[in-house]
Design a protein around this nucleic acid. Structure first.
Lengths: 339, 339
DNA sequence: TGGTGAAGCGGGTGCGCTCCCAAGTTTCGG
DNA sequence: CCGAAACTTGGGAGCGCACCCGCTTCACCA
């Protein structure tokens, strides 16, 4: 069989080869039952021979839908976002839509990029600190379904997130139960709503102890390490409660450099339960990351269906998924703890 | 200002409102210098008022390009792929194209999904064990630019990968240098070309020791753990060389359960240098993950430009990025090692 | 055997935009 | 003061496909 089509074949060429109209080609290839089995087969083989794939833009234009949805996240650096995105992709793909990703990652033109993305999809998930509420509201007002993930709600927009304050409170109480009296929260509540929620919970759970807030910027390992280098030489907290695991791991590194033993000299906690946390013996909080992504994708799909089937729009939904305290060694000496 | 357009505005409405033709709208919005500043501004404000965003499918159809490219990977579970994808996204976005992702992840219809993806992009990056060479060749023969990542080359297709055998050999030699004489390679060379390359390198470096191959399937933590549970009760190797870090971490877990000390009773090594490896004291190999993704994106872009500018196609390129041995504690007792 | 309806198929329109081509307008130099 | 170059702008032809109509063709029933 000669390999013909090096340049894209169109439906017209298939129609010509199969000696039918393009309407029939369209039907045959889309499994419509309005064509004879014989015709269908003839069309199919013609399509195969020409290596034909329908032009996605043309199809989208005609159908009025993209068959794709997008997700915007600040970064993919930590395993946290990766897991969420993976959960999202799996669910979205299962319902037949492609996934566009966009990492705002300190991009200066984030808002423009998100708007551009919005023009390519049937629905959009926006995670955390990526763009202003104003941008989100603007897109949502277009009628494009939007789901917010790990982010403060916006009027009329669905929101999925993981619980922060409740578990944070439990975490702080656990620390106090260990006898720690000088607590430091390392992280900037202004950096993300998640961090804000965690700090609030920690405050609520720190009764009977002195809590200091150190606004370390950045949520990565090096930020944590640098912040800790300064912090530990100056103050002498019993425990450092970090905004996330990466920061906590950085603190662990800094502590080790300064010869501080964890947890004897210093307790450290994180948030996210990264794989590394397990091996670092880090007490932390587990979030259902995969499930966060999956839920967002599922909700988005429902909205898209709603839109197309002219149903009356249901009210904005909000859900907070449960998080779980994971006690390991870094929070204080226990009788016997192995993960 | 009344919020008009809840339903998508089109270029016609903008044209009408600005009292010009759609051709002029198109020009004005695309920064063509063939329009008066005055006209441009009028069009812009009309577009703003209608909250107009050009339809991406229509534009793609007319331009004959998607302004997007895609990346296919087996999974996003490990931090490995996440980093690569992030590097890819960053570079692709910088050159103005959106990114579509597809995780084949044990999907039964992977080939179909990849073909569908191919119809949505101007270029495609295919990573590791996702689809057969046949599928790749088929897509490439369409004229669509393709770059292979961490995968055995296919005729006429660019390939970027990280070095395996050389560093693997050095790793094995290091192990032998520690005095280990009973080596086990844990991982299935048939699972991925990377694993095959690593095994080959280890074989080359194991002179003077006995090397056993244990074909543990799966490259995740639990696979490693389960494989090790069986392995360690039966055989008693001095050292287990794992196909990647996750497997190695699983082995660490299993060893700890059986009361084996690492590295005194058992040496363990991984591959990838995950964040967790650092905290587990795991000797491993670092790959330039971000750079792998970025290179793929860059090459893809070049190919796309080549295609559109009718240049004569340059020959397929291949590059192997350097990897680096990272010695920590798990490979054997050193005088003094801190990472 | 004429009538009836359903199945199978093709024509043609429209999706929203880009871009070529030509028409209209302004500006200058001779 | 006229004609041509230099700008602006509009008209219109696609881009490739889906889908609404309407025409044919038959099988089937009375």
């Amino acid at each position: 069989m000669a390999m013909k089509a090096l340049s894209k074949a169109t439906i017209y060429q298939v129609a010509q080869l199969a000696d039918v109209s393009i309407a029939t080609v369209s039907r045959a290839l889309r499994d419509s039952d309005l064509v004879t089995a014989e015709t269908r087969e003839r069309v199919r083989s013609a399509a195969r021979e020409l290596n034909f794939t329908p032009s996605r833009p043309a199809r989208s234009l005609a159908e009025g839908r993209h068959a794709a949805n997008g997700i915007v996240f600040p970064d993919l650096i930590g395993p946290y976002y990766a897991e969420v995105v993976l959960g999202y992709e799996a669910t979205a793909a299962a319902s037949g839509s492609s996934v566009l990703i966009l990492a705002t990652n300190g991009r200066p033109d984030a808002a423009a990029a998100v708007r551009e993305l919005a023009g390519r999809v049937d629905g959009l998930t926006v995670m955390g600190r990526t763009v202003d509420d104003e941008v989100v509201a603007g897109i949502a007002s277009t009628g494009l379904p939007v789901v917010l993930l790990a982010r403060d709600p916006v009027d009329g927009v669905d929101t999925v997130r993981a619980g922060n304050s409740g578990t944070a409170r439990a975490l702080a109480e656990h620390l106090v139960g260990h006898g720690h009296r000088t607590l430091t929260f390392l992280g900037d509540p202004d950096e993300s709503p998640d961090v804000a929620g965690r700090y609030a919970g920690v405050r609520a759970g720190s009764k009977g102890a002195r809590l200091t807030l150190v606004r370390g910027k950045g949520l990565d390992l090096d930020s944590g390490r640098r912040a800790a280098e300064q912090l530990l030489t100056r103050a002498k907290p019993d425990a450092v409660i970090c905004a996330n695991d990466e920061v906590a791991l950085g603190v662990l590194l800094a502590a080790s450099e300064q010869g501080l033993r964890v947890p004897e000299d210093l307790a450290v906690t994180g948030w996210d339960d990264l794989l590394a946390a397990r091996f670092a013996g880090l007490t932390t909080v587990r979030q259902p990351m995969r499930e966060l992504g999956a839920t967002a994708a599922r909700w988005l799909n429902r909205r898209i269906d709603e839109n197309s089937s002219e149903q009356n729009r249901t009210a904005a939904r909000r859900r907070i998924l449960a998080t779980e305290l994971v006690i390991r060694q870094s929070c204080g000496v226990h009788e016997e703890v192995r993960s």
